[in-house]
């Protein structure tokens, strides 16, 4: 039986509408109009023990709402959730003992206390026996390289240091399931790598189930084999990264560097490859590997153009996801070009 089962989850928020202007404000005192926002509109999925699942979607898609319901914070309007045989919002206290939660934009450490005192307070809150706590603390300190940070007051930590401490804090009570809500948000490249490496290790070595929401597609590519895509409160796709790619497009990308000496090439034409973008001597081409084999295409391009270097790659996951969002937003027939996909990614 899966560790997490979510069925037909619905959550609607009621937001009061403010009419602008003085008259509107006066009116608002006596009567308010409300507008319903469907944060979740029938979300279902299931997750097995030991999975590392990426949960992605644009802002306001319902990612955080799902995580908050799964971690016992919010109560849904309707739907069924069973996590390790608990319904989070019903037996919240017994349930949250078994899970760990990290919200990247907040901290669970006590702002005014040294890191180690936050850990000790969490030990007491979760009633972790001292010997277990000591072992766990030493292990986490070693894995996350926290030795030098333990006596520092939380307010003095950098964001990257704080996130490492927050990750450790969420694991003090040895949870069976970890929710990470944008754990790499705002981190520099080095800290991101450290966080990713740690998450991958936890998942691989302990079989800890991890549910990760993020806007950072590199997180997804580095960590998650399975990806759930949500938009407007509905699950759009659910599957492996490869499935996700295939469902949107079979397209591969070919990047060609033309020989620097020859600037004469002003136009590019090939029956099977489409020019997406040109950057000086660098051409970005898209092609369908089922229509033309990579070898044939490369041979032909090398024959017709002065090629200096070339390589083939999958379209970045950003482009894929942006295309999914775009396809669902606009009518299913419309095929937005790759360029608008890039813009959509840049906006986020």
């Amino acid at each position: 039986m899966p560790q997490i089962v979510v069925e037909d989850l619905i959550k609607t928020f009621r937001i009061s509408k403010r009419t602008p202007g003085l008259w509107g404000s006066l009116k608002g005192v006596f009567s308010r109009e409300y507008r319903n926002v469907h944060a979740l509109d029938g979300v279902s999925f299931s997750i097995d023990q030991g999975d590392l699942v990426g949960y992605i979607g644009p802002n306001g898609a319902g990612k955080s709402t799902t995580v908050k319901i799964l971690s016992g914070i919010l109560v849904p309007d309707s739907g069924r959730v069973s996590v390790m045989n608990h319904t989070p919002w019903i037996d919240r206290i017994d349930y949250v003992r078994r899970i760990g939660v990290v919200f990247g934009q907040r901290t669970q450490l006590w702002w005014d206390l040294p890191v180690i005192e936050s850990f000790e307070l969490l030990r007491d809150i979760y009633s972790v026996p001292q010997h277990k706590y000591a072992a766990k603390r030493d292990e986490l300190v070693e894995m996350l390289d926290l030795g030098a940070l333990l006596d520092v007051t939380v307010r003095q930590l950098s964001l990257g240091q704080r996130m490492r401490c927050d990750l450790a804090a969420s694991l003090i009570h040895d949870p069976e399931l970890l929710f990470l809500d944008e754990p790499t948000i705002g981190l520099d490249a080095v800290s991101k790598l450290a966080v990713r490496e740690f998450i991958a290790r936890l998942n691989k070595q302990r079989g800890l189930t991890v549910i990760l929401t993020t806007h950072d597609m590199d997180d997804i590519e580095a960590l998650c084999r399975r990806v759930l895509v949500i938009s407007d409160g509905r699950i759009l796709t659910d599957g492996t990264l490869a499935d996700l790619r295939a469902s949107v497009t079979r397209e591969r990308w070919l990047t060609v560097d033309l020989a620097a000496t020859d600037m004469a090439v002003t136009t590019f034409a090939d029956p099977d490859a489409q020019l997406i973008r040109r950057d000086g001597n660098r051409l970005y081409l898209a092609f369908d590997p089922q229509r033309v084999s990579v070898a044939d295409l490369i041979a032909r391009i090398a024959r017709n153009y002065p090629v200096h270097d070339l390589f083939v790659e999958n379209p970045p996951i950003e482009a894929i996801v942006a295309r999914i969002y775009a396809q669902r937003r606009i009518s299913p027939v419309a095929h937005p070009s790759v360029n608008t996909d890039h813009d959509a990614v840049a906006e986020k």
Binding site: S71, G72, D94, V96, I125, Y126
Partner: peptide, 8 residues
């Protein structure tokens, strides 16, 4: 949110 994820 964090207050509510404590077993308290």
């Amino acid at each position: 949110a964090y207050e509510m994820t404590r077993p308290l």
